[in-house]
């Protein structure tokens, strides 16, 4: 589904990713772990198409298309979804308006019929309840006044509503207590399926107890330094990232 080859990305002229290779097939869940500053978030932003994340070399092929040539909104319409590490607050735009605009934009791009207010409400009501969110959170401005956990839940809600084919979860576990973590993980697990791939970016092994990955990669110095199965995550938890030449004080 997604094939990344020799990806080099610079941010503000500073090379961050330096030849990253990664292939993820439909139905798989991969985890990318690594120390702070290894370039984990940069990978997420580069896949989503953020300005300022300049690809200087390499390629990203998504469902046979050159992802790097697409605008962020085109990527979203093609099923690419990035759950932000720091979801953005948008005062003045209600969560409902935002979700409806997003969903209908994507439906329009796919040539599907837009949902009217009633159809849309029916759709999000069910998803909202599954994630333990209240209707009141839908009326509020996007992420404004949301707690850390509420923001992350809101990301997963957007994911559930927009029904993407490829999800990147950037540090979705950060700032969550154990109950919130479980709810978020349940939400993500509900989206697992043969037609969907998920890339979980995380610093800690904890989230992977709940979202069990098929493969675990270690990202260090801008490249994939090692790939293994879920036991690699446990090993990293124990030994840290020292063997990858990273001295991280715990």
């Amino acid at each position: 589904m997604l094939e990344i080859k020799n990806l080099h990305v610079t941010v503000a002229d500073k090379p961050i990713l330096k030849g990253l290779d990664l292939t993820i097939d439909a139905g798989e869940v991969h985890a990318i772990m690594g120390p702070n500053g290894a370039g984990k978030s940069t990978l997420g932003y580069a896949l989503a198409g953020r300005d300022g994340y300049e690809v200087t070399e390499g390629s990203v092929t998504y469902r046979g298309q050159n992802l790097l040539e697409m605008e962020p909104e085109e990527r979203a319409a093609a099923g690419m979804f990035l759950a932000f590490q720091y979801p953005v607050e948008i005062p003045g735009v209600s969560n409902t308006t935002f979700l409806k605009s997003a969903l209908n934009s994507i439906r329009r791009a796919k040539g599907e019929k837009e949902l009217d207010a009633m159809e849309f409400l029916k759709l999000i009501r069910a998803k909202t309840r599954q994630l333990g969110m209240t209707d009141e959170m839908l009326k509020r401005a996007v992420n404004v006044g949301f707690s850390g956990g509420e923001k992350k839940r809101n990301e997963v809600l957007q994911m559930a509503v927009l029904d993407p084919a490829f999800c990147v979860l950037d540090e979705t576990d950060s700032g969550l207590d154990i109950d919130a973590l479980r709810i978020v993980a349940d939400g993500v697990n509900a989206l697992r399926g043969p037609d969907r791939a998920i890339l979980v970016i995380t610093h800690y092994q904890r989230l992977l107890d709940y979202i069990v990955p098929d493969k675990v990669h270690v990202l260090a110095h801008g490249r994939i330094a090692r790939t293994g199965d879920k036991s690699l995550a446990l090993e990293l938890e124990e030994k840290g990232y020292a063997e990858f030449g990273v001295d991280e004080a715990a």
């Binding site: 605008e71 948008i90 997003a102």
Partner: peptide, 11 residues
């Protein structure tokens, strides 16, 4: 904010 909206499919 612009990027967040665009990343959700809004042109």
């Amino acid at each position: 904010q612009l990027f967040y909206l665009r990343a959700r499919g809004i042109d």
